[in-house]
């Protein structure tokens, strides 16, 4: 979040509340968990790190923040950084493996429960997307979230097929 807030200041120096409004507009329903003070905590950290400075302003309780040269460098670096994908699948995969091996639980049941949970959150994302006004940028984020969940659901189909066929159980058990 620090990097995103920093990059928002590249357009022009801003107040904390302006930054917060821009963040919330971009994130839509996904930004609803952000607490109001979070942006000021982030700005405080960025100021301490010398990446932003507080500009003189007519009102002392409404601080205007601007990028420092090192802040500008960091924004440039962040923009060209490539995020490494992190599929969080190993834990669930191992859960199915050990459940089947030790007969602790039925892997197919675990898959069904996981599927129900994914469908519930996919539902929430889809209903939120339908409720967004036309042209909302938050919808793009919701689309991405939904595609991830759809991929997870398809992977669960593969898990189900694998674990519901007895001869596919690991032979070393």
């Amino acid at each position: 979040m620090q990097d995103a807030v920093l990059a928002m200041l590249a357009k022009e120096p801003s107040h904390g509340y302006e930054l917060r409004a821009r963040l919330q507009q971009s994130l839509g329903p996904l930004g609803e968990s952000m607490n109001p003070g979070q942006i000021y905590v982030t700005l405080g950290r960025l100021e301490k790190a010398g990446l932003i400075v507080c500009e003189p302003s007519d009102s002392p309780d409404r601080k205007v923040y601007a990028l420092t040269p090192s802040g500008q460098q960091r924004v440039a670096a962040w923009l060209t950084e490539v995020a490494r994908p992190k599929p969080d699948l190993a834990e669930f995969h191992l859960k199915l493996v050990v459940a089947a091996a030790a007969r602790l639980a039925d892997p197919v049941e675990l898959v069904a429960a996981q599927r129900r949970e994914l469908l519930r959150i996919l539902r929430e994302a889809q209903l939120a997307a339908l409720a967004e006004p036309a042209g909302s940028t938050a919808v793009v984020l919701l689309e991405g979230v939904m595609l991830r969940f759809q991929a997870d659901l398809r992977w669960l189909d593969i898990c189900e097929r694998t674990w519901s066929t007895p001869h596919n159980e690991p032979e070393d058990t």
Binding site: Q2, L30, G31, E32, S33, A112, R120, I121, E124, V145
Partner: peptide, 20 residues
Amino acid sequence: DDTRLLDGTGRLAGLIGLEG
């Protein structure tokens, strides 16, 4: 499987994936 899908669970807001 026969599942009822219910509205409003607040799962979405927890997905933000951004850290302070």
